[in-house]
Design a protein around this nucleic acid. Sequence first.
DNA 1: TATTGTTATACTCTATAACTATA
DNA 2: TATAGTTATAGAGTATAACAATA
Lengths: 156, 156
Amino acid sequence: MGRKPAAPLQQTARAIRGRRAAYVLDDQIGFMLRQAYQRNSVLFGELFADELTPTQWAAIAKLSQVGGCSQNHLGRLIAMDAATVKGVVDRLMKRGLVESAPSATDRRRLLLTLTAAGRKTIEQGVARAFEVSAKTLAPLKANEQAVLLRLLKRIG
Amino acid sequence: MGRKPAAPLQQTARAIRGRRAAYVLDDQIGFMLRQAYQRNSVLFGELFADELTPTQWAAIAKLSQVGGCSQNHLGRLIAMDAATVKGVVDRLMKRGLVESAPSATDRRRLLLTLTAAGRKTIEQGVARAFEVSAKTLAPLKANEQAVLLRLLKRIG
DNA sequence: TATTGTTATACTCTATAACTATA
DNA sequence: TATAGTTATAGAGTATAACAATA
């Protein structure tokens, strides 16, 4: 299979020469990020049989990682707005995966923790979550995967 | 600045040796994609002063690129569900950026096109859209940007 | 004054099912 | 009949702004 010349580089070269580069939507980082994230979400839905959304998984995985924290702090850890994380946590509590208790030291805070069911969900989900990541990256060779992750982390 | 060893590779190596790798949310491709896309969206919102969302921009940019097409076809071009694209197009028509007319050759179809206002929005937005892409990629050097785009396109 | 959490509102994404018009 | 496209509806994530309680 022949490799096509990289469009983004052509664009940059043109810009340097002072000519107007065409705006090609499909070559823009935002458009690519959206498409890649969408494909990842579909894979997640297939492997998790729609028990949990990627966002809900992120919330309980992070909660499992840190042991327990306030609602707003959890939001900061997983890059979610206070209003957003509230909705996510509400749904997780309704399913009995997360519980909250007022903090003893600061009565503004709600201390979030995983329930026994929540911990079980993590235990049973980790292998599948790894598989989602592997399948998302499957089009790339191992060294390319590592490069992508390293670069992606720096623009996040 | 010292470079830290790449965690994903360590994880893979561990998995190969049969030991259980820890699931670190922040090292998963899906989590990174979501964060990067979110940062891109924030930059978009800043530069477009919330006149348009990234999705709406994608719709009119693609429409400008292809000249005109049916609603469902547009959805396929920008990886959007038929129901999703309908909402987006409805909002764009309400703002007078897009108009629709029945196709002459296949009367099932509605041919979508940009209005004069829509074409003006594209003209005035392209420079800013380029800037959004540039700012999103700014943490990376030029050659790293090209590598990221090339790899990302392959997992989208 | 700053922070935590809540509420209200709006847009987007996704999925399903039902429907219309045409091939 | 089969297909392309549209419409209706619902649940979820995202963000902003305004607000009350607490630190």
